[in-house]
Design a protein around this nucleic acid. Sequence first.
DNA 1: TCTGATAATCAGTAATACTGAATATCAGCT
DNA 2: AGCTGATATTCAGTATTACTGATTATCAGA
Lengths: 147, 147
Amino acid sequence: MRAQADRISDHTGYRLVKVGHVAAAAFDEALAPLGMRPRHVMVLEAIRGGTLSQQDLCQLTGMDRTTMVAVVDELERLGYAHRERSAADRRKHVVKPTAAGESAFEEAARALLAAEEALLGPLSAAERDSLGGLVAKLFEAAARRPG
Amino acid sequence: MRAQADRISDHTGYRLVKVGHVAAAAFDEALAPLGMRPRHVMVLEAIRGGTLSQQDLCQLTGMDRTTMVAVVDELERLGYAHRERSAADRRKHVVKPTAAGESAFEEAARALLAAEEALLGPLSAAERDSLGGLVAKLFEAAARRPG
DNA sequence: TCTGATAATCAGTAATACTGAATATCAGCT
DNA sequence: AGCTGATATTCAGTATTACTGATTATCAGA
């Protein structure tokens, strides 16, 4: 009747935090050869197709506006994107991918997928599906909260 | 046959990172009224019973030695622990809890448990068990890695 | 043509986690 | 006893992160 863990480090919450850190480090490492971090890939993904200002990108990704300035700076420096002033609203900087940026995104997406494969390697296919569903539930519940 | 998510933000790996952040923030918030953070509680927990030096605590918790100095400083300032020079090895500072520290740990453990309850609230009991098992597997696999 | 709001940028700040150096002490060898 | 290399703790300094607040340019509406 008593399934409660004694030590804090045996609790699911603690382990969720740790696994999140490990996953974040793995994704950083997977993208390091490309000179990017996950946030850059998120932006490259978002600007495929759409015409998005930095502010739009902030809302889509949850990044701070000042962080977004730096991320777009870096994507420009890498030759993966460039800013254009919006003709409709000249306050806005529309961020557009370059051809190199589009293929860099493809490569980064593959690298992230491989890192995720390695991360979830200890789990069977059924277990991964199960984990995906459970984490999605927690994710959506968290998204509905103020934070 | 194709269960792969299109967007990065739909992947389990990305969500694991996010959920980890949310959990960490929830634990910080739960302990804020006590003037502590999870790392302080980890140390308070470890020093119940055992006779541990700061170095021992570093190995148990994974914290850096310089971080541990600050954590023990803060526990002393709160009146929850104090350093004693080890008689056996005078290089070592044995960290011992005060009576106030022991009850503060109990209260902190309750606060963390409540925060975990809230975090896992969206899941049924069966789902929590399932998540706990899956996260434990990932956690142990990560612990075996060099990082 | 004002007024208040919004977009992007920049400068400065606070927190985090670390590296490397300094000090004190130990354990083993001669 | 005295020397050598290693260990425990501490401190100072560094790099990174994520932010707040101020600034400039532009917009939309009275």
